[in-house]
Design a protein around this nucleic acid. Structure first.
Length: 607
RNA sequence: GGAUCUGUAGCUCAAUUGGAUAGAGCACUUGGCUUCGAACCAAGGGGUCGGGGGUUCGAGUCCCUCCAGAUCCGCCA
């Protein structure tokens, strides 16, 4: 090797080292996870990890820092050591972090980390688009397949307000899982099989109005079911006739099946109209009927392995180790030999595991089914493990009831359940009135479009913004309010950012941010810190399958932006200041829109 | 009868699941637009976290026990 070629080689080496160091200078997407890993490595060098040290890094109260590590406290307690000494031991070797963070010990042994302004700038420069945010978040569930079962209405009935939460929460969860790298399969587990079809066919054969069936199919089917139900009182010969219709259907009579298929098709077409407005599209509509021929295997395998037993003529599963389900049976086949909800749900869990190769299954229903799903999952885990099947993560995502402001069930003035279509229509009407009042100069066609996005988005957001465990009080005034943790407030923040770019004649997709200096004013710093926390918001929302964490984050981000907007003028003469403020505006826009899209909302140019 | 969930400011809700002085919005009081959208911002008052015990460095969060509401508990889904 010549002298001449040696020098460039050395230079190349130095260059690559510099590049490596340069890469090291950029913080990763999830700063909390980075701190956690660094502390864990430090603890390992000190020999603390084999004694179970966990750094416990989380986002901190801004008064203390950006992130805090609480692990020294729990560890010191267990090991009967002084927590401050443990924390000090951990902090001393952390020179590598001091480039980016101010580090301080506080209280009984908290370790506080505050990002330095240049580090904030570096992070914001790296994560500059929805695509890059997605790439940063995508390793959490990379390579995994998740089946999400939500919405799941009954065919031949209109969707009503009770169906809203499952659809909205389920879709947000799908998007969060997909954003964090999972392959998501959206499965609508329709209630498309059961005893009600006997009465429906009975009514259909006598009173169907073909005209109405074309124009208002589900309304007509509901009318026919009500007629059929009223005409077949208990003990009557008419009821016997309805039962014969059901037996014919279940035994596979082609004419009955064709009728049933027709009911399913018109129902699905009507559901699709609602789903389109909510931004939902299912990959599969595998309802209960799909599992009809798959329940025999459930009976056979569970009986063979001794998990299921016959009791009072029915096939049931007990869980002797469980305080409740040792006594409370899981009834998987009725005494008359018919399948039920439990039989088809077991078959469904198996199908999702075998056919879709699910690593995780999420079912989104209201809290009343909690017992059922606890028994279902207990049974499925034992069954799959015993047979050597893959055992996916099984989650039942529950939510509380929707009530009126008096705490009672939400009803129309006539006492009927409020239909989902009527609810969305009213949301759009109310939003239209609001937009017209606030922006009378916008052309009507655009106001209509704005009203669709604001109206439906408000309904979605109001549902998502609160912890799903509690009951949800439905209030038009609160969900369409312009301030507070609402869709209009967030959408308004988006339009304000866009307006700056529009007024300045700049492309919001490629803002001129070269030469941006690090954030400096109090409002810039608050906003920049909030932007970096997006990673944490996505993580906790996904980990807990609770979208309200993301909502709260977006609300705080919009608040930080509004504070910044009021305090710091963006279009100023100083090029470095203007560039950094444009950068903050742009990252706010990207983060707000990414977050709102994750929740299933659409965003606006102006409103 | 057994069990699960819920109970936080006048109202509607948070609190990253055991962390630092329990936070927002509405309502109320006050201040801020000839200046990038005031559908906004800034500031203020408002709490025995249903009651009572316990666990520990530390509890709205965990345990026990009452009170109130909702829900589930063998042939609906």
């Amino acid at each position: 090797m010549s002298h001449a070629s040696g020098k460039p080689a050395k230079m190349l080496l130095a260059q690559s080292q510099a590049q490596f160091l340069n890469r090291q200078m950029n913080l990763p997407f999830d700063v909390a996870a980075y701190l956690d890993a660094t502390l864990l490595a430090t603890a390992a060098n000190l020999g603390l990890t084999e004694r179970g040290f966990d750094p416990e890094v989380r986002v901190a109260d801004p008064a203390h820092g950006d992130f805090q590590a609480n692990g020294a406290l729990a560890f010191a307690k267990r090991e009967k050591q002084n927590p401050r000494t443990v924390a000090q031991q951990l902090v001393d070797p952390l020179e590598v972090l001091r480039e980016h963070f101010d580090i301080a010990l506080a209280g009984p042994g908290f370790i506080n980390f505050r990002l330095k302004p240049p580090a904030l700038l570096g992070w914001l420069q790296a994560y500059d688009s929805e695509e890059h945010l997605r790439a940063g978040a995508a390793n959490a569930h990379a390579g995994q397949t998740w089946v999400v079962d939500y919405s799941s209405p009954n065919t031949a009935k209109q969707m009503h307000v009770g169906h809203l939460r499952s659809a909205v929460i389920g879709e947000a969860i799908c998007r969060l899982l997909a954003f964090t790298g999972a392959k998501v399969i959206r499965d609508n587990h329709l209630g498309d099989w059961g005893t009600q079809f006997g009465k429906l066919i009975y009514g259909y054969k006598r009173w169907v109005d073909d005209e109405a069936l074309l124009t208002q199919p589900i309304e007509e089917l509901e009318r026919l079911y009500k007629l059929g139900h009223a005409a077949t009182p208990d003990g009557s010969p008419e009821l016997e006739e309805a039962r014969r219709e059901l037996v014919q259907l279940q035994s596979g009579d082609p004419k009955s099946l064709a009728l049933w298929k027709k009911f399913s098709d018109v129902s699905l077409a009507a559901f699709e109209q609602i789903y389109a407005r909510l931004g939902i599209h299912f990959d599969h509509n595998l309802g209960e009927s799909f599992y009809n021929d798959k329940v025999e295997r459930v009976y056979r395998e569970l009986t063979a392995m001794g998990l299921a037993q016959v009791s009072e003529g029915a096939l049931v599963v007990f869980h002797p180790e469980h305080p409740r389900f040792a006594k409370q049976p899981f009834l998987i086949r009725k005494a008359d030999g018919a399948s039920n909800y439990a039989s088809t749900d077991l078959a469904t869990a198996l199908y999702r595991t075998e056919h879709f190769k699910a690593d995780g299954i999420v079912v989104v229903t209201d809290f009343r089914q909690a017992d059922h799903f606890e028994q279902l999952y207990l049974t499925a885990r034992k069954w799959f493990a015993a047979k050597g099947y893959h055992v996916p993560a099984l989650h039942h995502v529950t939510f509380g009831a929707v009530t009126a402001e008096d705490g009672k069930a939400l009803k129309t003035r006539d006492g009927d359940v409020i239909k989902l279509k009527a609810l969305l229509d009213e949301a759009e009407e109310r939003a239209f009135a609001l937009v017209t009042a606030k922006s009378p100069d916008v052309p009507e066609e655009e106001r209509r479009e704005i009203a669709r996005i604001v109206g439906v988005g408000s309904v979605q957001y109001a549902d998502l913004a609160q912890n799903r465990s509690s009951n949800y009080v439905f209030s038009w005034d609160k969900m369409l309010a312009l301030d507070g943790n609402t869709a209009p407030y967030l959408l308004y923040a988006v339009t304000r950012v866009r307006s700056i770019f529009r007024k300045a004649g700049l492309d919001p997709a490629r803002p001129p941010v070269e030469g941006a200096s690090a954030p400096e004013t109090p409002q810039e710093l608050v906003l920049a810190r909030k932007l970096v926390q997006f990673a944490d918001a996505v993580k906790i929302s996904t980990d807990h399958l609770r979208p309200h964490f993301l909502c709260l984050y977006l609300f705080e981000l919009a608040g930080a932006y509004s504070g910044f907007y009021a305090a710091d003028k963006v279009i100023v003469d100083d090029p470095a200041v203007r560039a950094r403020r444009l950068l903050l505006c742009h990252r706010t826009l990207v983060t707000l829109e990414t977050g709102l899209h994750l929740l299933g909302l659409r965003t606006l140019e102006r409103m």
